[in-house]
């Protein structure tokens, strides 16, 4: 089950904690992976960690619409084959209470976290529709459903991603292409590592499963939605949050 032999998967934000785990999991299941991110050295290190011939990387600055538009083509050039699986994982935050939030903080987060995934979906769908198969998994966040003080921009982008994915799922379902969302809760990453212990304990106390998530918890959910076995699942949001929000 869940084998991806012969498939090409593009993972954006692949040098980060969650993106790296997603790429490693898809790769372990047989996929050829194309890692995308902004930092070449980090991508190279990640690619070397995975090793072998089924790993490629492409740098892309997704805040630039032209680079987002071109990424699918570049990935296909590297892999030598069309992209079967697109995982829109790249994202950034500019947290700030709304009263102090500048237009540029709002615009940048909406652009990178919502508009650029749309551009990548649009570019990838063209070939997927022709081939009558494909998998898109968009990585949103629990805060897209619950909201979070200080993240008006980020939660709007992530909620937008869910609506976008549902619409795309309806548009392309007749061609055997699925579009789904994974919404992570609090995941242990370098970003959460630096939180004081007291705050980590408080976070954990809100999670029925009693721990923060690992990047691998997210990767497993992504793998399922990328698999042939998930062929009858589309427009869905899979919440992976330890039970913190049961939605």
């Amino acid at each position: 089950m869940f084998k991806l032999d012969g498939k090409v998967a593009l993972v954006t934000g692949a040098s980060g904690g969650i993106g790296g785990a997603i790429a490693a999991t898809l790769h372990a299941q047989g996929a050829t992976v194309v890692l995308s991110g902004t930092r070449e050295d980090a991508l190279k290190a990640q690619a070397e960690k995975l090793g072998g011939e089924r790993v490629h990387y492409v740098t892309a600055n997704l805040s630039d619409p032209a680079e987002a538009d071109a990424l699918i083509g570049k990935a296909e050039e590297k892999a030598g084959k069309p992209v079967d699986i697109l995982v829109n994982n790249a994202g950034l935050t500019r947290d700030m209470l709304a009263l102090r939030m500048k237009d540029e903080d709002w615009d940048q987060v909406l652009n990178v976290d919502l508009s650029s995934p749309f551009r990548l979906c649009r570019a990838a769908l063209k070939g997927m529709l022709r081939r009558r198969s494909g998998r898109i998994v968009n990585i949103a966040s629990v805060v897209g459903a619950t909201g979070n003080a200080g993240q008006a921009n980020y939660s709007a982008a992530k909620a937008g991603m869910v609506g976008m994915s549902k619409s795309l799922a309806q548009e392309v379902g007749s061609r055997g292409v699925t579009v789904n969302v994974v919404a992570p809760g609090f995941i242990v990453t370098p970003m959460t590592d630096v939180l004081p212990d007291a705050q980590k304990e408080k976070l954990q106390s809100q999670i029925p499963l009693g721990r923060l998530g690992k990047p691998e918890d997210i990767a497993a959910a992504v793998l399922y939605l990328c698999s042939d076995e998930a062929g009858w699942v589309t427009g869905a949001t899979l919440h992976v949050n330890g039970g913190m929000a049961m939605i």
Binding site: K126, L129, R130, E171, V172, S174, R175
Partner: peptide
Amino acid sequence: ADSLDTVELVM
């Protein structure tokens, strides 16, 4: 053809 086909044809 369905509506998606017509869009793809035009493209």
